[in-house]
Computed example of a mutant assay.
Amino acid sequence: MKLGPPIQKILQKRYPPLSIVEKTFGNHDLAFKTDEEGFPILLFLGKKQADGRIKGDRFARRLVKQDGQIIKDHWDHKGKAT
C-alpha cells in the first residue's frame, strides 16, 4: 500500500511535539506519533476499533536532517497493524 498525495499533505504539517494525533480522512482513521520537533514519524492507517486501536497498516518515516535541512524523507510500509 502506498500513501497518496492527500494523506502525505496531512503528514507534511507539524503538530505538537511528542504526541499522538488522531484524524479522520475519508473512510480511514489515522493516528500518528510525532517526534521532538513535531514531525509525524509513525503512522497507523485503517479503521479504529472499539478499544481505540487502529486495525489496518503501519508506516514508519525515515527522516534524515543535516544542518537543520531535511535531506531524506520517506515513508516505509511496515506491515499490518492490529
Results as ranks from 00 to 15, higher is better:
Lys2Asn: 11
Leu3Trp: 10
Leu3Gln: 11
Leu3Cys: 10
Leu3Val: 07
Pro5Val: 03
Pro5Cys: 09
Pro6Ser: 10
Ile7Trp: 01
Ile7Val: 15
Gln8Lys: 06
Gln8Cys: 06
Gln8Pro: 00
Lys9Asp: 13
Lys9Arg: 13
Lys9Glu: 14
Ile10Glu: 01
Ile10Met: 01
Leu11Thr: 11
Gln12Pro: 02
Lys13Gly: 02
Lys13Tyr: 07
Arg14Gly: 02
Arg14Ser: 06
Arg14Ala: 02
Arg14Gln: 10
Tyr15Gly: 13
Tyr15Met: 06
Pro16Ser: 10
Pro16Glu: 04
Pro16His: 05
Pro17Val: 02
Ser19Asn: 08
Ser19Thr: 10
Ile20Asp: 07
Ile20Leu: 09
Val21Asp: 00
Val21Leu: 04
Val21Trp: 01
Val21Arg: 08
Glu22Tyr: 11
Lys23Leu: 15
Thr24Asn: 12
Phe25Ser: 12
Phe25Lys: 07
Phe25Thr: 09
Gly26Lys: 13
Gly26Cys: 06
Gly26Ile: 05
Asn27Phe: 09
Asn27Tyr: 07
Asn27Met: 09
Asn27Val: 14
Asn27Trp: 02
Asn27Thr: 15
Asp29His: 13
Ala31Thr: 11
Phe32Leu: 05
Phe32Ser: 02
Phe32Met: 04
Phe32Trp: 05
Lys33Met: 07
Lys33Ala: 04
Lys33His: 06
Thr34Trp: 01
Thr34Pro: 05
Asp35Lys: 08
Asp35Thr: 08
Asp35Leu: 05
Asp35Ala: 13
Glu36Tyr: 11
Glu36Gln: 12
Glu37Lys: 15
Glu37Val: 15
Glu37Pro: 02
Gly38Leu: 05
Phe39Glu: 03
Phe39Pro: 00
Ile41Pro: 00
Leu45Thr: 07
Leu45Met: 14
Leu45Phe: 11
Gly46Asp: 04
Gly46Lys: 12
Lys47Asn: 04
Lys47His: 13
Lys47Val: 12
Lys48Ile: 10
Gln49Arg: 15
Ala50Met: 09
Asp51Tyr: 08
Gly52Ala: 13
Arg53Ile: 08
Arg53Glu: 15
Ile54Pro: 03
Ile54Leu: 05
Lys55Asn: 12
Lys55Phe: 11
Gly56Ser: 10
Gly56Arg: 11
Asp57Phe: 14
Asp57Ile: 07
Arg58Met: 11
Arg58Ala: 06
Phe59Ser: 14
Phe59Tyr: 14
Phe59His: 09
Ala60Ser: 14
Ala60Lys: 05
Arg61Met: 04
Arg62Asp: 12
Leu63Ala: 05
Val64Arg: 14
Val64Glu: 14
Val64Gly: 04
Lys65Ser: 01
Asp67Gln: 12
Asp67Ile: 05
Gly68Ile: 01
Gln69Gly: 04
Ile70Phe: 02
Ile70Leu: 01
Ile70Tyr: 02
Ile71Pro: 00
Lys72Ala: 06
Lys72Met: 01
Asp73Met: 01
Asp73Pro: 00
His74Tyr: 08
His74Pro: 00
His74Arg: 06
His74Met: 06
Trp75Glu: 03
Trp75Ser: 02
Trp75Ile: 00
Asp76Gly: 07
Asp76Lys: 11
Asp76Ala: 13
Lys78Asp: 12
Gly79Ala: 12
Lys80Gln: 15
Lys80Val: 15
Ala81Tyr: 01
